[in-house]
Amino acid sequence: MRRLLLCALGLLLAAAPCGAAAADTLPPLAATPPAIAINSLYNGMDLTVAGKVPAGSQVVVRLAGEPTTFHMKEKGKVFGILWMNREKVAFSDAPKVFLEAASEGVAPETAARYGVPGLAERIKAETSDPDKAALVAEFLKFQQAEKLYRDSAGQVTLAPEADGQTPFSAVLHVPSRLSPGTYSVEALAIKDGAVVARGQTAIAASFVGAPAFLADMAFGHATLYGVLASIIAILGGLVISRIFQGSKSGAH
């Protein structure tokens, strides 16, 4: 299953614009930490990706979540004055999360091509509205406002060349809004605005500790969870009311 997911993620990233036809494969990438543990104290994290690119290359590093279909509503004017939610629209093949960081020497237009604006080429809008491109642009804006898609989401540092290769280290700021799943991490070696080599690895994010227990209850035993949530809330209210009654004893 995980292998399948990895293949899908690989295809997804490969489907993003890659400029030149064939690109070499980079030496294996090292991601630190190798997995993301979402515990109660998780509040976003820095993911370090290290690797080597051919000498003279610049580097773009991307992290992408699993491709998902987002169901949304398009806003439009009713009677020419009131903004309302109108047509339903589904955006398919869109990653749950997308982060990009580029080394300093990458031209802005190149960074954009492999970054959030470049996603427009593969995300499909399913709607009756003929202007699908405008809708996809709005979707990218929406995801950026939600902080789920980000360009310049970290720094890429290049080390001095050695043996015809340039080591690099990238730090990506992974957002606090993260759900469990497999995330693909990809490094692109860029020369003259084109990809000359690429490397890829995957990183798994999973709930541990209290979040794992709560998610299991909420999804696996939903009705019981709802009943317990209500009972605990009532008890909480009773306790607080009791405390206040105690502090006011003799007031009336």
Binding site: F70, H71, M72, K73, E74, K75, G76, I81, L82, W83, M84, N85, K88, V89, L135, E138, F139, K141, F142, A145
Partner: peptide
Amino acid sequence: ELLARPNVLLAAI
């Protein structure tokens, strides 16, 4: 909210 143009012309369902 009904009268002003929203920043993003999409809403999550």
